[in-house]
Write a protein that binds this DNA or RNA. Structure first.
Lengths: 224, 224
DNA sequence: AAACCAGTATAACATATGTTAATCTCAAAC
DNA sequence: GTTTGAGATTAACATATGTTATACTGGTTT
């Protein structure tokens, strides 16, 4: 779909890669940010710390996702980001992003699509936090991740990788650790999901979509 | 700051304006969206409807704010938008947005800043919904609106315009109508805010910032 | 001026979720 | 092969928030 020249430029972006250890921050809220990051391998979280160890995870970044796309050449980060798993990133100068998207309209459209998508994902997060019950939040998040993986993997069956701890899940879904555990058990007991180390199996996707009011339309593939 | 030519183009965008009555939708979730809207006058809300009349308001759009900035020429809206007050909008073809931002790098940087800001505002909304108590949510939202108005008005004193009903506030903050009323009373009783029709007075901004863990850094002015 | 209606206010009660604390599991470290 | 510690599980209890219902307020319609 892309021309050779376009692909060459995109690959050129990956010249400057770095690895980040698990639990290590690579974007720090309120600090200077002059870099755009593309996730190549692993999971990252965007989050914000509140007082006394309280934390809100805002979103997950998976391979192919971009962090800091709208950094001008000087900006202050409005969130922190850290590696949930060992992470491989490409670090790109935001001026190069602009330059490339001006040269290649299709890439520009792709970036625009990325932005709209990230926006939709964060909107879904607000819906979860604002209007869903604990069980619904869990189901809704699993469905989001399952749909997102469906777009970057060949066949993921009914399994979703869940590398985060229940503490992380709780901080994502705005609930306590104990209640997260309770609600997860309740989903298990209802037969809706099966849980094993680092994976969750969605036993009845249709029922999960129904009970959590998930809208798959928010996560569709890029098309121009 | 901008050249004459730049200003001329920006004003050209306002050729195609429209007015929207209170409570009327102009973007409908899951429907086709081919237009970018700039708010010229009034308030809009972005929201999503759930089953049985439940609703989550995602954000407020004030004069100068842009909706649907990252619509490619064909897209499906992932949220609805409607007029909270009588509204005046500029409707812009997203292709023109791209064209103009390619011609004028400063405008492109401004749009990029708009996007980052909208993102930060939605992140703050997630923090409110996920990790703040009812009283904190109210205070935090008032502070957000107060700071945003401070950037577009000369002097707004300690007053914030609040054209929304308590039903709207409840749907913004993910709480019930009754509890919204209760918590608002509690803020009043504590002397932190004074409420009169369509306005709230922030009696002690510093205390409100402290008690709601508001971060003013997320809402700074555009600078290049 | 009576009737109406959207919005606000308050009370009484129900429940989902938070808190504290104790135990259990299992893989990594020594 | 013990020890250790992070993570998961469960119980008992506390509380913030939701629900239902009723009344109040003030502007608009007739």
């Amino acid at each position: 779909m892309l021309s050779e020249e376009e692909i060459e430029f995109l690959e050129g972006l990956q010249n400057n890669t770095l690895t980040v250890d698990r639990a290590q921050d690579f974007i720090v809220e309120n600090a200077d940010l002059r870099t755009t990051f593309i996730v190549i391998e692993g999971w990252a979280i965007r989050y914000s710390d509140l007082s006394t160890g309280r934390r809100q995870i805002l979103s997950y970044a998976l391979p192919g996702d971009i962090l800091g796309l709208h950094v001008n050449f000087r900006a202050t980060a409005t969130y922190s980001a850290s590696a949930l798993t060992p992470l491989k990133l490409a670090a790109v100068d935001p001026r190069r992003v602009i330059e490339i998207s001006q040269k290649f309209p299709i890439i520009a459209a792709g970036l625009s699509w990325c932005t709209a998508r990230e926006f939709a994902i964060l909107g879904d997060q607000a819906i979860r936090l604002g209007r869903l019950s604990a069980r619904q939040r869990l189901a809704h998040l699993f469905l989001e991740l399952w749909h997102r993986f469906a777009l970057i993997e060949n066949d993921n069956g009914n399994w979703v990788e869940i590398p985060m701890t229940q503490r992380d899940l709780a901080d994502t879904l705005g609930m306590s650790l104990v209640h997260t555990n309770r609600s997860l058990k309740s989903l298990r007991d209802a037969g809706l999901v099966s849980v094993s180390k680092d994976y969750v199996r969605l036993n009845d996707v249709k029922a999960l979509i129904e009970m959590s009011e998930f809208n798959p339309e928010h996560l569709t593939e890029f098309q121009i």
